[in-house]
Amino acid sequence: MQNPYLPYPVRIDDITVETEDKSLKTFKFVFLNPGDEEKFAYQAGQFAELSIAGLGEIPIGIASSPTEKGFVKFTVFKTGKVTSYLHAMKEGDIMGIRGPMGNSYPWDQLKGKTVVIIGGGFAFTTLRSSIVYMLHPDNRSNFKDIHVIYGARSPGMLLYKDELMAWAQRDDINMHITVDGTDDPEWKYHKGFVPAITEQVAPPGNADTYAIICGPPIMIKFTQPVLDKLDYSHDKIIMSLENRMKCGIGICGHCNIGKELVCKDGPVFTLEQLNQTPKEY
């Protein structure tokens, strides 16, 4: 019988500091045992438990795309015991990852549709995975228009800045990058909060348009009325939740919202589904 709690051993191959305040770093992991990468086959929107012996595990969204081979990437905000320790780890260090876990964004349903990605702050990791996945030459023709509205407090707080700038140059994705404010005279993108920019640039809702929203609660709270105004039905608004978790596989009982377990039945839910659950997230 397989032990579902046993992490795959991995080596930290590369660490990138993402933001000017150094609170976010991207860790690139390589599997130690050949064959484990294949077992870890994942889809954009899933997450994994990062495991550090002696400290514990943390559930983190997968930031790399299934189309990127040879490694997996996670962008981690330094906040608690495990993440603080992880931020002090070095390239070459050994740790574990366990997963992939949870459902993903509903890629079958999104086929042939316009996808509007709305992200804020550091909740952009599985959205990065999704964008890289959709833009891959094998997949791009599976989707209609792709719109991305992504905002952070300041230019220095945007994740994956080089990629954002590169995507902004392309004609097969509509990038709308915004910051709350900046005194940089060279800044050529939007200024303003995500809900306001969404109202200006997002296409109106229809049967062929889905919105995927990830961000801080305050952003979600003010974006929802904008999407209502734009006529997005609640089954076309897709969100990804976070809750305290231990096992990640639906057994330990920590992350439930009503009868749903965020780790196993989620983390991705439509707003229509969330309307039927207690707001315990």
């Binding site: 709690y5 002696g54 096992c247 009982g253």
Partner: peptide, 10 residues
Amino acid sequence: CWCFDVQDET
């Protein structure tokens, strides 16, 4: 009741 916590002890 089946809920559990996971902790590392060194």
